[in-house]
Design a protein around this nucleic acid. Structure first.
Lengths: 202, 202, 202, 202
DNA sequence: GGATAATCGAGACGGTACGTCACGTCTTAAG
DNA sequence: CTTAAGACGTGACGTACCGTCTCGATTATCC
C-alpha cells in the first residue's frame, strides 16, 4: 500500500524511521501548513537524515500522501463496497454525509486539501494517487451506479461518468474552494437534485 | 481593474514597467510552468528590479492574476450579461461551449490552472480573486438562472447555488483535475442532465 | 567651513534643511553606529529628500564630517594657537590632557572614530579632511615645536615630523585601536618620554 | 590557526573549498578593493555556495583575515622570537626595516589596511585578531624590550607599553594614514629618537 | 556467530530563490 | 531652482531549502 515496492531493497527498511517520518510530516503540516512544510523540517522533526527521505519518497507531496494513507489505515471501510440497500438515494446520502463529516475534520481536511492541490500540479503524484486511491474509489462508485442503472433507478442511457460528477462534484468543489459550509443538508439536496436529472423519464 | 488602487501613491507608477512585468510573467509561466516561476525570474526578464514587483504585488500569484486579467482586457464579453434568448438550455450550451474552447487553449489554460491552484491555498489571493473576478461572474450566472426560474423553466424551489454547481461544476472539475477531454459534447450532456434535475416536475 | 562653496548654487540653499540633515546624521550615528548609518536614514530622520543630500555631499562620510565640524564650531579654541608659556613639556601636557578629555567623551569619540576610519579608506574624504582640519592643526603643532627647537628645548637636528609622531602618535593609536584607557597620566608619561628623546644631548 | 576550531563539526570541512574561498577573497580584494568586496562575489569566484562561507566565517572581514594569515603561513618568521644580538638599536632597526618592506608590498599592504580598518570598527573581529595575531606579536616585542631593560639598555622605570608605542607607533601611523613614504631611513630615525628617550639617563 | 552490505543519522556542499535594505538616479508637484 | 517625496534599476545582504554527496555507526541477513 506504500511506495516501498518500487525501491531497491525494502527488506532492510527501518519501519520505525518510516513511521517517525510520516508522523512528523503530519504534525508539521498541521503546524505550519503545506506551503511551509519542508523535507528538511520533516527530517529534523523525525530525527531522520534527509537522505532517508529522499531514498524512499520522490517529493514532500508523496510523503504527505503516504502519511494520510497511513492515517486512514485500519478503517477498512475505505475500500469496502458502497452500501447497497436497494435505495440509491438513501445510500448516496449515507455516503455523502460521511464524506461531509470527514471533510469537516480540520485534522484531515487541511493536509488533504494541500495534497489535492499538489496533485493538480504534479502529474507523477497524480498518477500515484489515481492508481492507489482515486481510481479504486471511482470504480466503487461506478459499480454502485451501474447496479442502480441495471435496476432501473437511473435512465438507461445515462453517462455514468457525468452522473458521478453531478453527484460528487458539487461537494468536492465546495470543499476545495471553501465555497460555503459543508452540511448534511447540502449533501442531501445535491443527491436529490442530481438524481432528479438522472432518473428514467416516465 | 488592477491592484494599483490599493497601493501607496499609485500616481507615480510606471506603466511601462507594469506591462513589462505582466508580460514577462506570462512568458515565463508558459516556458517553465508555475512551480518554477519566480519573482527573481520575472524581474530579470522584465528588466525590472525585484523591489518594484514587491512594491506592487504581494506574491507571484498576484502578479500572474493581474497578468491574466490584462490578457482578457478588451474582450469585454467577460463581464457582459449571459445570453438570454428565452431558451435556457440553448443559452447554457452556448456559454459552456465557449468556456470549453477557452480551457482548451493551453496559452490560457496552463497559467489559469496554476493560478486557480494558488488561489486554493492562499486566502488573500482568494479574496482578491473573489472580489474582482469570481464574484461578479457568479452573480451573472445567478441572475440568468433566476430569470429562468421566474420564467418557470426551473423548479420554483430549486437552490440556485446548487444549480450553479451542478451546471458548471463538472466542467470545472474535469478541467482542473484533467479527468478526460473537454468537448462540446460533454458540455451539452452536462447541461442536459443537470437541467433534467432542475426543471419543474410535471 | 562647509562644502557649499564648491557647489552649483549655494545662494538658494536652505539653511534649515542643512542643519536638519547634520543633526539627523549626528543623532543616528549615536543610535546605530556608523556602519548602519545610511543616507536614506538621515533623509528620513531629517524630513529631507535624498536628492537634497546627494546634491550637497558626496558620501555619508562627508555628511558626518560636516556634522562634526558644526559641533565644534563656536569653540574657536580649535584653530587657535597652541599654548606657549615657554615650558614645552607643560604646554604639551596641557594640550594632550585636553585631547584625552575630548576623546573620552563618547558623544564625540564614537562618530569621530568612525569618521577617522572612513578617511583611511576614502582618499577624497581624506583630502577634504586634510585641507580643512588635519593640515591646519598639524601646522599649529609644527609651529609650536619649531619655536621650541629655536629656543634650544629640542635638539637642533630633530626631525619635526617624527617628533610630532612620537608625541601625538601613541595617544591617537591607543584611542583608535582601543588599546587601553586614555588617562592624564598616560598623556604625561608619553610627553615626558618623548621629550627625553628629543631634547638636546648635553 | 584558523577559525575552524570554534565551529560545528569541523571534521567534515572541505579543505579544497576553504582554500578556494581564501584565494578568491585575496584575488578580489586586489581587483576591486575592500569596500566592493562582497561575500557574494567571493562565493561566485570560488565556485562555492554563500552558505558555505557563512557557515565558517561571520563576516567578510573574518574571511580576509584568514586569507591573509594563510598568505603568511609557512614563513614561520612570523611568530619566531625577535632577533637579540645584544644590540637593541641594531635589532630594532632590523625588525622595523623588515616591516617597512612588507608594508611597501601593495599585494599585502592594501588588504591589510582594509582589514586593520575593519578591525577598528568590529569588536568581534578585533578580539579574534588580538587573540590570534596582535596579542602574540605584542608579547614578543615586550619580551625583547624587557630583556633590554634588564640588560640596562633601557631606563629601569620605563613603561614598556609606552616604549612599544613610541617605537612602533609612528611607523604604523604613517602607514595607516598614508602620511608620507615608508623608508628604511624613517625606520632608523624613529628607532634612534625613541631609544634616546628610553635609555637610562646618565 | 561473524562477515558484509545496505540503511541510518548527520550534515557539508553548490545552488536557487527568498524578501529586505540601501544605493544613486530619476521624475513629479509644491513653493 | 530647490525641495520633499518616493519610484526605479541595481546589487548585496543573510536565510531557508533544495537535492547530492560523503561520512562513520548501526543493523540484519547470509555465509
Amino acid at each position: 500500500m506504500t511506495t516501498q515496492r518500487r525501491t531497491p531493497d525494502a527488506g532492510r527498511r527501518s519501519e520505525a524511521t518510516r513511521r517517525a517520518i510520516l508522523d512528523a510530516a503530519l504534525e508539521l503540516v498541521g503546524e505550519v501548513g503545506y506551503a511551509r512544510l519542508s523535507i528538511e523540517g520533516i527530517a529534523a522533526r523525525a530525527g531522520a537524515g534527509k537522505q532517508t527521505i529522499y531514498r524512499w519518497w520522490p517529493s514532500k507531496g508523496a510523503v504527505l500522501f503516504d502519511a494520510l494513507l497511513a492515517l486512514s489505515e485500519g478503517r477498512d471501510e475505505e475500500l469496502a463496497d458502497l452500501p447497497d440497500t436497494g435505495d440509491l438515494e438513501a445510500d448516496l446520502k449515507t455516503v455523502l454525509r460521511a464524506t461531509v463529516d470527514e471533510l469537516n475534520d480540520p485534522r484531515l481536511s487541511e493536509p488533504m486539501r494541500a495534497l489535492t492541490v499538489e496533485i493538480l500540479l504534479d502529474p507523477k503524484l497524480a498518477a500515484d494517487f489515481a492508481e492507489r486511491l482515486d481510481g479504486p474509489l471511482r470504480e466503487l462508485k461506478l459499480r454502485r451506479l451501474r447496479r442502480a442503472r441495471e435496476a432501473g433507478q437511473l435512465a438507461p442511457d445515462v453517462d455514468l461518468d457525468i452522473a458521478l460528477d453531478l453527484i460528487w462534484g458539487p461537494l468536492q468543489r465546495r470543499w476545495l474552494h471553501r465555497e460555503g459550509p459543508l452540511t448534511a443538508e447540502f449533501a442531501d439536496a445535491v443527491v436529490e437534485t442530481a438524481l432528479n436529472g438522472l432518473r428514467p423519464r416516465t
